[in-house]
Design a protein around this nucleic acid. Structure first.
Length: 572
RNA sequence: CGGAGAGUAGCGCAGCCUGGUAGCGCGUCUGGUUUGGGACCAGAAUGUCGCGGGUUCAAAUCCUGCCUCUCCGACCA
């Protein structure tokens, strides 16, 4: 492709509305163009990257016997009403009506449609397992779209769905997809990690998210450097004792102590001269139907709201306001499990089980209680894991000290179970001729987000540095003197040779000054640059630059193409 | 959805406080000189100043309603 045909228009300055490096660079390199908040044009250069990513995924899906189809972006409400999500999904679902006032939505995900496809075709256990996938633009009306392609409202996703006659079969597919995803992200040259994640409202025992590691990531990942354990902070566990320690013989008695204006753990620990690890805080949250729930947890730890929400099988969880708490008879800043007046379901985190002389709130303003021994005083509580794990905690698998990092969620594998197949009455006949409901898995990769995350991970001050497998072009040839027949002639010859080897090649044939071409080439970020100029050509040389290393090499014109090819193949 | 900010030429911005000819840089066009890391000189084109209402002799500027966009937070099967 010639640059003059390629519809690439770079920007010298950062766009005003971009924050994230990938957003800035994609806009500046002429890959994307904003149309509305969270909605973008994928310009020719950007689309090339997206297609490269899709092709890699496509190959790996095919390898696992997943068949590609394309479902519509616009979905009749009927299907969503059948699954029950029409009423449940909320404002993220963009709803619209056609001229006959029939209701539709723009698909944020396609479980309903794929079940409809499968149930009309699959009637027998002999047809199972079966799986389908597509690349499709999804629409989710995010409350706050941001970060360019990272969190858009319209985005391209690969979504796959599998149907099985047994749990074992689903489990097998789950791990095959897990392996396929690992191959996909490896091939793209990304540094990533599969992590255990919370399965959310759908439930299910296992789900993994695939995260590209980057400081700008919106998720926090806790991982163990010495074993495979890695989890989203929402899910992460730490190794903690789940037994009470013995009640010490000299255990102190409970005693009220006046603590005027001392409310935070920090203040309590300083005022009473106790470690925060000997304080027990009670965190109160509000779940579905405005019910209050509370959790007792060690003073230095943080409550994990997702874990608490899951325990109570609630769809929502939120922090009540101080006013709300007081209205419901909770002594703000002095809450504790003893003498509790407010109506609440209370649980306790394992972390308090080995406290031998704890400080707790007294449930009246300006008073705390000392000498709390959970093994004695809180023995009949329901104990569980409700704490947020973090760097420094021990690994639940191997006991080593864990670390944390930021990640961008680019993929997820999920065991759906029969939620949709049952709701939408998908059935087949099993070996015994009995009606059965297939169990399902679903597996997504955010294609456009993956492109953005690749840039987050691969850039420098001059621009993008594409991993070779997803670069828009493998080679970027610059004809520095395009009017010089020997220069442009050689550039074209090389270009055609690369293309004939199925190596995408961009030929900068513009009548621009060299500096402009160099800047654009670095910004666009193709892995290998071939610089052909009149002067060096007269010396029988061509310059080759490796984008990532920044290294320049001169190669002799004689046999130059083979030399360049060799250099290209040495790039990862 | 709560809090904050922005909307002026294709892009990035100034002007607004204190009302009176709409500006700068980049880009674009013409001519010339240049030509290995975003050239230089000369000339030119380009604006419903987000939209509506109001105040005023006069509004980009003051008042007001709305829209859009961005940031922080909450949210994210």
């Amino acid at each position: 492709m010639r640059y003059s045909d390629a519809f690439i228009y770079t920007l010298r300055e950062d766009p005003a509305d971009a924050e994230l490096i990938s957003h800035k660079l994609m806009t500046r390199a002429g890959m994307i163009m904003k149309v509305a908040s969270g909605i973008y044009n994928y310009l020719p250069l950007g689309l090339r990257v997206i297609r490269k990513i899709e092709d890699i995924i496509r190959e790996e899906m095919t390898r696992e016997g997943v068949a590609e189809l394309l479902m519509p972006g616009t979905i009749p409400a009927e299907l969503w009403k059948e699954s029950g999500r029409w009423d449940y999904y909320g404002d993220e679902l963009l709803r619209l009506k056609d001229r006959k006032q029939n209701e539709f939505c723009l698909g944020p995900t396609h479980e309903e449609v794929v079940v409809d496809v499968a149930r009309r075709s699959v009637k027998s256990y002999k047809q199972l397992p079966t799986s389908l996938y597509q690349f499709q633009s999804k629409f989710r009306d995010e409350r706050r779209p941001r970060f360019g392609l990272m969190r858009g409202r319209e985005f391209i996703m690969k979504d796959a769905y599998s149907f099985h006659a047994s749990e074992e079969c689903l489990n097998d597919m789950y791990w095959r997809m897990h392996a396929a995803y690992t191959r996909v992200f490896n091939r793209m040259g990304l540094t990533f990690r599969p992590v255990e994640a919370d399965s959310g409202a759908i439930g299910g025992d296992v789900t993994h998210e695939f995260h590209v590691l980057a400081d700008s990531g919106e998720d926090k990942i806790i991982y163990c450097p010495s074993c495979d354990y890695a989890a989203n902070v929402e899910k992460a566990k730490a190794k903690r004792s789940t037994e009470f320690t013995a009640i010490p013989s000299n255990a102190p008695a409970l005693a009220e102590v006046e603590t005027v204006g001392i409310m935070s753990i920090e203040d309590v620990s300083a005022f009473l001269k106790v470690e925060s690890t000997q304080c027990i805080k009670m965190v109160v949250m509000k779940i579905d139907d405005n019910k209050f729930v509370g959790c007792l947890i060690r003073g230095d730890l943080e409550l994990n709201e997702v874990k608490l929400r899951n325990f109570f099988r609630s769809n929502t969880i939120e922090t009540p306001s101080d006013v709300e708490l007081r209205d419901n008879k909770f002594a703000c800043g002095y809450m504790g499990p003893i003498n509790l007046e407010g109506k609440i379901s209370l649980v306790a985190d394992y972390s308090i089980m080995d406290i031998t002389s704890g400080v707790i709130g007294a449930n009246r303003e300006n008073w705390h209680i000392t000498g709390c021994v959970p093994a004695r005083d809180l023995a009949d509580m329901t104990y569980g894991d409700f704490a947020t794990a973090g760097a420094g905690d021990k690994c639940p698998t191997c006991g080593e000290t864990m670390a944390d990092c930021r990640g961008i969620e680019v993929g997820q594998v999920f065991k759906l179970g029969t939620k949709y197949s049952a709701a939408m009455s998908m059935t087949y006949l099993d070996q015994n001729g009995k009606t059965a409901t297939p169990t399902m898995g679903c597996y997504g990769i955010g294609v456009t987000r993956t492109a953005a995350s690749a840039i987050e991970q691969n850039h420098d001050d001059n621009g993008i540095i594409w991993p070779r497998e997803i670069a828009p072009f493998q080679v970027h040839i610059m004809a520095l003197d395009p009017k010089d027949e020997s220069v442009i002639g050689l550039a074209k010859e090389f270009h055609d040779k690369f293309e004939s080897l199925k190596l995408d090649c961009l030929l900068d044939d513009r009548d621009e000054r060299p500096g402009v071409k160099f800047k654009d080439a670095d910004l666009i970020g193709c892995p290998l640059q071939v610089i052909i100029g009149g002067k060096s050509l007269k010396n029988g040389e061509i310059e080759v630059k490796l984008r990532r290393a920044g290294e320049k090499r001169m190669v002799a014109v004689d046999g130059a193409f083979d030399s360049i090819l060799e250099i290209l193949n040495s790039i990862a």
